[in-house]
């Protein structure tokens, strides 16, 4: 699987299939990116489970925080890793030991661990790396276009309102639109740079 780019249908398929998402690294602090993503996905109807070994409180937005994935009593469809790349491997190992096994391992924007991805894929688990499910939901529903963001999609089909105000469904029919090649190339180069720095530190 090429983890440098994903088709819209692959991402849409995952976001349309999973119902329960355990977010490892979810923060209780309302100004952290993980809290933003947690709250948005909760409002979009996902059953969100915060997991954080460094937790200080009991719950996030009314959802109980667990210390380890293994402590979560309910089946998990997707594990969303909101920790740095070097922490991804043990989290994936922990996820693969769950019964039932999650269908998807998702690593957040800026998180990429090819070894962990290969392990998950060998275990029959789908993998997404270096993406944010909130941004992808916003992009594929086109909600994020209200912020002027290039959704990289176009469509001649009506967007589908999904109840409430300013909510659009993920089940919008779209094909790919404008690309962001320069941003993708810059991101790859930054990532390459970080790898070199890490190697030197070793």
């Amino acid at each position: 699987m090429n983890h440098d780019s994903y088709s819209d249908s692959y991402i849409r398929g995952i976001l349309n299939t999973v119902k329960t998402i355990a977010m490892v690294g979810a923060s209780e602090r309302a100004n952290r990116p993980s809290y933003f993503a947690f709250k948005y996905l909760l409002e979009r109807g996902y059953t969100m489970i915060p997991v954080n070994p460094l937790r200080t409180g009991e719950q996030i937005l009314g959802r109980r925080i667990y210390v380890r994935l293994g402590d979560v009593p309910d089946p998990i469809d997707m594990v969303d890793i909101f920790r740095s790349s070097r922490h991804a491997l043990p989290i994936v190992q922990e996820a693969l030991a769950l019964n039932p096994r999650p269908q998807v391992i998702w690593m957040q924007l800026g998180v990429r661990n090819d070894e962990a991805a290969a392990l998950a894929e060998a275990g029959g688990v789908k993998v997404v790396m270096n993406r944010c499910p909130k941004i992808e939901y916003g992009r594929l529903s086109s909600e994020i276009a209200w912020m002027g963001v290039n959704t990289r999609t176009i469509s001649a089909k009506k967007a589908i309102a999904s109840g409430g105000i300013q909510r659009l469904s993920l089940n919008r029919a779209s094909v790919s639109g404008g690309t962001t090649e320069a941003a993708d190339a810059a991101e790859r180069s930054e990532r390459g740079g970080r790898r070199i720095i890490q190697a030197r530190n070793l």
Binding site: Y40, A145, N150, T151
Partner: peptide
């Protein structure tokens, strides 16, 4: 924390179409 419109000084659905279109044409 969520995407959407509050007040047209900050964002507007017609203007947003223009914003995405220019971004897409420039590759941004």
């Amino acid at each position: 924390q969520t995407f959407g419109n509050i007040y047209t000084r900050i964002g507007n659905p017609t203007t947003a179409v223009l914003e995405e279109r220019v971004a897409a044409l420039e590759g941004g």
